[in-house]
Nucleic acid binder design. Structure first.
Lengths: 337, 337
DNA sequence: CTGTTAGCGCGTTCAT
DNA sequence: ATGAACGCGCTAACAG
């Protein structure tokens, strides 16, 4: 491996001078600078980031941990995070916890060992608290994405799930629906709680009957087995005329189940959800959704993280960004008025 | 930061003993081992990966560079790569070149500086050759994904685009189509060349007229501006009855354009393509496609890479995996027979 | 403007 | 079974 000493020897200067040329620090005569640069090119020199990190005590590495890489919400978010990181000259390490606390824990280990400069994390849920405490204890700056974790203060980017749920219920009632069901992620995730709360409030506000039977708490992630959803659909009597899905994945799961039963959307049942589906939806958007600014979740979160890193940890109070969402009315709701 | 010296001091042993406990090397008495471990926990010790990498001359880091993170083909591939890397205890760094040679180059810089142990790369095209040569020159093991690069021998995972194109043309002719058009990625990508070649051959085989007007060469990536596609559609007279899209993104772009013109698929025009769309397609698969095993591209590629790394560079001849694809007939082709 | 010294945290080598 | 010395490649601090 070519080192600064090889360069130094060949250019008849000290290693320190080479280092200065590389980093543009100190004062170097144009002549030696040119000579050093020429030798570097000749030898195909590439600085060793590991060695730099060791002495500088920073890696220039950031970590993005999301919970579902197959979910377009998160890949779009990742894209935003990548762009922001790149803009500031940081490199991005990447992990996917699969809504699984153990996997999250494994990635935490990597994060700590790698001495990344900061972490952008969508926690699996409230149980992520110890993980976040570990980060805090090791003085690793982090920004939470999408989900709050009770007991942990930090910079955070959130959506307004409560308001979103209200809007969905309102829209459904305006379309004449009165028996509305909710399929939700685990209530250990703050987003699920928010959406449930907004749902309940709006149901009450509209004088609609609320029954626990009409709410299913499951996982936000994809599943191989639809039986839980099947059982839920069977359990609801009388059947709902509309279902609100806590996220895009759940909407797809429900539609798969309905499709298996030969039921059509929206003719037999209306469906709405949080978050957009993939780009396919652009062709001819079908699902009525609460659309969140996924790219901004990543971009702004990354920006906050980098600010926090650069200004030092004690850069002021925690910041909280709440991104508004938008109801996009499409064709998955039948007017039953 | 807690170091092995802190542990050593508190446990009344030398740093070397601590190192041995951490790495399970050498012989250590059970008693001291237990003591050291206890102190490590007390102090929340986490090994410094940078320091280890520096002395061990390996980082335990792998890099995956894809060309389009918004394309489900690549995210699924990424998922496969992640799983395989994790299984072997490697961490994964991640980048997205956006089908852009300059971005690819920037990531190459990161790759070199970071001293990753290996690279899994979907090159943007033939122009990536210098990048690959750089990797080779610096003795960084890599595996190519999806696209060949003339002039560079290496381990590689490919699909059979020629056969795929043949199957698509065959299917279309069986459905009565005779004016078939092709929208393709840049011919600087081997996949685009293969698909074009298969297309031409199959057209000839079926005695169908082949005209350059009916083939558009553009980018495999998403675009903001549909005018190129608009112009192409206008140019084709008589209009084709079916379009083959070189990948899923292009299929979506064409469908967006048609939708803008008030044309319906397949009533007014049939469409088929390479690669699945996102999970949304599962609900009610619409597009007839050549489905590739995206997950396997990543999983097997990563496996090859890790083998190459572990067995040393001179572990034998380059390996080439060609993954079969499958024609999935759905509802985007009209029978005009 | 340039060089020397020291040390970042760890593992290899050779002692003991 | 354990420790001391050294070096991985680089840069901060101080000399000159």
């Amino acid at each position: 491996m070519v080192t600064i000493y090889d360069i130094a020897a060949k250019a008849n200067v000290s290693a320190m001078t080479v280092s200065r040329v590389i980093n543009n620090t100190g004062r170097i005569s144009e002549k030696t600078r040119a000579k050093v640069k020429r030798v570097m090119e000749e030898l195909n020199y590439v600085p060793n980031q590991m060695a730099r990190s060791l002495v500088l005590q920073r890696t220039n590495l950031l970590f993005l941990l999301i919970t579902d890489i197959t979910n377009p919400f998160y890949t779009t978010l990742a894209r935003g995070a990548e762009d922001a990181a790149k803009k500031h000259g940081f490199r991005l390490l990447f992990g996917n916890s699969d809504e699984n606390l153990d996997k999250e824990n494994e990635y935490l280990d990597t994060i700590l060992k790698t001495r990344v400069d900061g972490v952008l994390i969508a926690p699996t849920g409230d149980a992520s608290l110890p993980h976040l405490e570990t980060l805090r204890r090791h003085a690793v700056p982090f920004v939470l994405l999408d989900r709050e974790v009770p007991g942990m203060e930090s910079d955070i980017v959130l959506g307004d799930g409560k308001e979103g749920a209200r809007q969905l219920v309102k829209h459904l009632t305006e379309m004449g629906h009165r028996r509305i069901a909710l399929i939700n992620g685990s209530l250990t995730a703050s987003t699920a709680r928010q959406r449930l709360e907004g749902f309940r409030e709006a149901m009450k506000l509209n004088d609609l009957a609320y029954s626990d039977d009409y709410v299913l708490e499951t996982s936000f992630g994809p599943r191989s087995d639809l039986s839980e959803i099947e059982a839920w659909l069977d359990r609801m009597t009388p059947a709902p005329t509309a279902i609100i899905a806590g996220n895009n994945v759940l909407a797809v799961e429900v539609m798969r189940t309905l499709h298996g039963r030969g039921l059509r959307v929206p003719d037999d049942l209306s469906i709405v959800c949080f978050d957009e589906l993939a780009s396919y939806a652009e062709i001819d958007p079908f699902l009525t959704v609460i659309s969140q600014q996924a790219y901004q979740f990543g971009y702004l979160g990354m920006q906050m993280l980098i600010e926090r890193i650069q200004e030092g940890e004690a850069a002021g109070p925690w910041k909280k960004i709440v991104l508004p969402s938008e109801l996009l009315v499409r064709r998955s709701v039948k007017n039953v008025g």
